[in-house]
Computed example of a mutant assay.
Amino acid sequence: MRRISRKQAWGTAACTAAALLAAPAVALADTEDLSAQEISDKAEKELLDAKSVHLELEQKGTDLDDEEPATMELTLDQDDNCVGSLTMADDGGSLELIKQGEKVWMKPDAAFWKAQLPGGQGEAAADIIGDRYLYGTTDDALLKDMAGVCDLKEIQQEVQDESGDESTLKKGERTKVDGTDVIPVTGRDDGKTTTMYVAAEGTPYLVRATEKGQGTDSTLKLSEYDKPVPKDTPSEEDSVNVSQLQGVQDGGPAGNL
């Protein structure tokens, strides 16, 4: 099976947020009274300090292929817990994903299996798994690669690594995003325009970030900072151990599922 790298799966989400975020925040007045750089600083600090967050990513453009998500919706935390779904670009299918520590449950649709396994193997896997979850741990290469999207610490590290990049930021007029009053901050870098929308009142959370240019436009929404990741997991009856798929992946007969 072709592996979907963590960089492909969550890298755009992290880079979209990171593009405008720079140095540590300073303690100042209300968000609306701050400069563009100060707003960026505060939003970065809140993102780096978050114990958990809900992300919604949408990507559009000619540069996407079936190894990248067109959409991704995840609730994830710093303890390697995660729940959500991904829809791959270029008719690459979709999947539901649950991770609790090292344990992973993944439920792809038939289109995903057919895109990932060559010949009739994808169709065979889809028939065998059906509407159940593939279950295992991060010791399995397939589950480890897909569960890489659940790593909030790596996303935060990506943001931190981007800090300090030179960019001219411009503050816009107060507006609303999904019912929240926000202050937009816009910057340009390497032919891309990124706009960050930061809550104008209360905690200066990053609410939305958009990136446009060079073949792909991305929108990242963030919410539910520091709220726990749901702990519900599929039952044994609704799960198939990943080891039982080995025969299909190797091109031989599948196990008794």
Rank of each mutant, 00 (worst) to 15 (best):
C15V: 05
T16Q: 00
T16A: 05
A17S: 15
A17E: 09
A17Y: 11
A18G: 13
A19C: 07
A19K: 08
A19F: 08
L21W: 03
L21A: 09
A22Y: 10
A22K: 15
A23P: 04
A25C: 01
A25K: 00
A25N: 04
V26K: 15
V26T: 13
L28R: 15
L28D: 15
A29E: 15
D30K: 11
E32F: 06
E32I: 02
L34M: 11
L34P: 01
A36W: 06
A36E: 13
Q37M: 14
S40V: 04
S40F: 05
K42L: 15
K42S: 15
K42Y: 01
K45T: 12
K45E: 13
K45F: 04
L48F: 11
D49N: 14
D49P: 06
H54K: 12
H54R: 12
L55N: 01
L55R: 07
L55K: 00
L57M: 09
L57D: 05
E58T: 15
G61R: 14
T62W: 12
T62D: 10
D63Q: 14
D65L: 02
D65Y: 05
D65S: 05
D66W: 09
D66Q: 06
D66Y: 15
E67V: 06
E68M: 09
E68L: 00
A70L: 02
A70H: 08
A70D: 02
M72W: 10
M72E: 03
E73D: 10
E73C: 00
L74E: 06
L74V: 01
T75C: 00
T75M: 06
L76F: 08
D77Y: 01
D77F: 05
Q78D: 14
Q78W: 09
D79Q: 10
D79V: 03
D80A: 10
D80P: 05
D80I: 00
N81P: 00
N81R: 13
V83W: 08
